[in-house]
């Protein structure tokens, strides 16, 4: 119990300042660009910021990767069992995701009203998307992003540096070359079906997707990555 509480406290104390720093920088940049655009260049119309959520996702990806490398050593040295380390990391990622989803929902919807920025959900589902759903959608998305990078870092550690680079290279090649080529080789009908499948997966109403689909998708991915991360962490040695 002491170890668990201490581990969770440690995770938050160490990582929370970075969250504050991230938002300070992000909105500092946003404010500066806004002033530049409106004041100096005299632009008064049009959306300036598309997907600020992407910045949050990048932050969470870094946090997810960082969550393993440094904290694992420190917590292991202090005799925290691996299961508890996983729990503490999970608590941190979930809390970060929840807080960031809340901030991004509130701020971006407010900015959206003035057409300064546009929330990702508005772009996908239209302006009628409710705010509570917006928060949950972002929360689950952020969870799956941080957990996937957490699991990926663990996997890289497991297979070693050389194989990680190989795996990364192969993955990148598949994504950048293999995928377009495969898609390009598909018949037109197949391509349409594939596009429709992905649109439905994200619950785009125009494609006839269920509004619940993205929630199920992100939740499923989060759980899947968590399970992978837990399985890997339990067998990770400290050397």
């Amino acid at each position: 119990m002491k170890k668990r509480n201490a581990a969770i406290l440690y995770e938050f104390r160490v990582s929370f300042p970075y969250l504050l720093l991230f938002y300070a920088i992000q909105y500092g940049v946003v404010a500066a660009l806004w002033l530049l655009a409106r004041g100096v260049m005299g632009l008064s119309e049009g959306r300036l910021f598309g997907t600020l959520e992407l910045c949050s996702m990048i932050f969470l990806a870094v946090a997810g990767a960082q969550g393993f490398t440094e904290d694992f050593k420190m917590l292991m040295q202090n005799g925290v069992p691996r299961g508890t380390i996983f729990l503490a990391n999970l608590a941190l990622f979930a809390s970060f995701s929840a807080v960031m989803a809340l901030i991004d929902t509130v701020v971006l919807r407010a900015l959206g009203q003035n057409s300064v920025a546009e929330p990702l959900t508005w772009a996908l589902y239209g302006r009628e998307f409710p705010s509570a759903a917006n928060w949950l959608w972002l929360f689950l998305l952020y969870c799956s992003v941080s957990m996937s990078f957490y699991a990926a870092t663990l996997a890289c550690h497991k297979i070693g540096r050389v194989w990680s680079f190989c795996a990364g290279g192969v993955l990148l090649a598949l994504l950048l070359i293999g995928l377009p080529v495969t898609v390009g080789m598909l018949p037109a009908e197949g391509r349409e079906r594939l596009a429709l499948f992905f649109l439905r997966l994200f619950g785009i109403p125009a494609a006839g997707g269920s509004p619940l689909a993205p929630f199920a998708l992100f939740l499923g991915l989060s759980l899947l990555w968590s399970a992978c991360a837990f399985g890997l962490l339990r067998r990770t040695e400290l050397r």
């Binding site: 170890k3 160490v14 440094e70 904290d71 050593k73 420190m74 292991m76 040295q77 005799g79 925290v80 069992p81 400290l238 050397r239």
Partner: peptide, 14 residues
């Protein structure tokens, strides 16, 4: 793990 503390050669502290 609550019974044993190990001071290793490697540095694991933050």
């Amino acid at each position: 793990q609550d019974l044993l503390f190990c001071v290793g050669e490697a540095n694991y502290y933050r």
